[in-house]
């Protein structure tokens, strides 16, 4: 009996269909980089890519948390606000003379607790994640403004030292400690998703929550965990942003939830859950960052083209997802 193997044949090589979206994104990234290198002088260097990491380390971390949530079929609109709240908390506490370690610890705990609370409401009261995290978004932004309405500069010496530190990679290449932090988060998260039961349960719930329940998986614990992870990642992203900006401000990271969602979707993760890879999210963030880089190299192109390009990419990738999932259900119904 012949069975469908779910593989695409490309030039004698077979590729599981589930990797196709990630490969498309990777191809897109390579094509954009190649086009940029041909078109602009000084573009085709490693440092351009490293700068994309440097400028988007906080987005990368936030998008990692978002990936967990979206893989379960949920969504987290609160991430941008939690990032802002974290910069605010850090700035205020440092101003008041708290030790750096305590500040970092507290910020991370606050982010995780906010996520935990939202996850619990989503699961136990069966309210759509969209609405719960919308309330979380209002709450976190509101808390920012109750702390202070102005931008608060960060002058703590160890913070500024960390913010200005660079790590040379040999040659002309360098990165910042934030990039290292971001990559560590990616690696840990990838390990969790691939090699732990929590990670596999995340995928299972995204595939079918009802089946996951019937298979005896800890659905409640897992769902709450992903929102907690997302809250934690947002707080960490907020800390990285406060290194980058050296200030705390309630208007930081406005709309970052959209960038994070866009990065995840462009990275090939299904918004309905159950399918996607962290590598894709990394590529999604890189693609977003590279769009900005190209537009700044272009000079004459204005910044709003970024949004239009991102919207167009979203459109293409969502249609691609529809096609892939339509083919899948087609195969199943035979």
């Amino acid at each position: 009996m012949t069975t469908l193997t779910g593989r695409l044949r490309i030039g004698g090589q077979t590729i599981p269909r589930k990797y196709v979206p990630v490969l498309v994104t990777a191809g897109l990234f390579v094509a954009m980089f190649a086009a940029g290198s041909v078109r602009y002088e000084a573009f085709g260097t490693g440092q351009v890519i490293l700068n994309v990491f440097v400028d988007n380390a906080f987005l990368l971390v936030v998008a990692v948390g978002m990936t967990f949530v979206i893989l379960t079929g949920g969504i987290d609109l609160s991430v941008g606000s939690v990032v802002a709240l974290s910069t605010m908390l850090a700035a205020v506490l440092l101003r008041d003379g708290w030790p750096v370690v305590a500040v970092i610890g507290l910020v991370l705990v606050v982010g995780a607790v906010l996520g935990l609370g939202m996850g619990a409401i989503v699961h136990y009261f069966e309210i759509q994640p969209f609405i719960v995290t919308l309330a979380g978004m209002f709450l976190a932004r509101g808390l920012c403004y109750t702390i202070a309405t102005d931008s608060i500069p960060i002058t703590d010496p160890s913070f500024t030292a960390f913010a200005q530190a660079t790590i040379p990679l040999g040659g002309e290449l360098w990165i910042t400690p934030s990039v290292v932090a971001g990559l560590v988060v990616v690696v840990v998260a990838a390990y969790v998703l691939h090699y732990t039961r929590l990670g596999r349960n995340v995928y299972a719930i995204g595939g079918s929550e009802q089946s996951a329940l019937l298979m005896g998986l800890p659905v409640a614990r897992t769902k709450i965990a992903v929102y907690t992870i997302s809250g934690f990642c947002s707080a960490l992203g907020g800390l990285l942003l406060s290194f980058y900006m050296l200030s705390g401000y309630g208007l930081h990271a406005v709309g970052m939830e959209l960038d994070a969602i866009a990065a995840v979707v462009i990275g090939g993760t299904l918004l309905t859950g159950g399918s996607g890879y962290l590598l894709g999210t990394v590529l999604g963030v890189l693609v977003l960052g590279l769009i900005q880089t190209i537009i700044s190299f272009e000079g004459t192109l204005s910044s709003w083209w970024t949004k239009i390009f991102i919207g167009a990419l979203l459109f293409v990738f969502i249609l691609l997802q529809r096609l892939i999932s339509a083919r899948r259900t087609g195969a199943r119904s035979t």
Binding site: F130, L258, L271, W304, K307, G311, L314, I318
Partner: peptide, 21 residues
């Protein structure tokens, strides 16, 4: 046949850029 929340997200993101354009 795209979920409404996803379908309208596209214009939400791109539309801001269009307005600025």
């Amino acid at each position: 046949g795209i979920q409404p929340i996803i379908a309208t997200l596209i214009l939400m993101v791109a539309g801001r850029g269009l307005a600025q354009l």
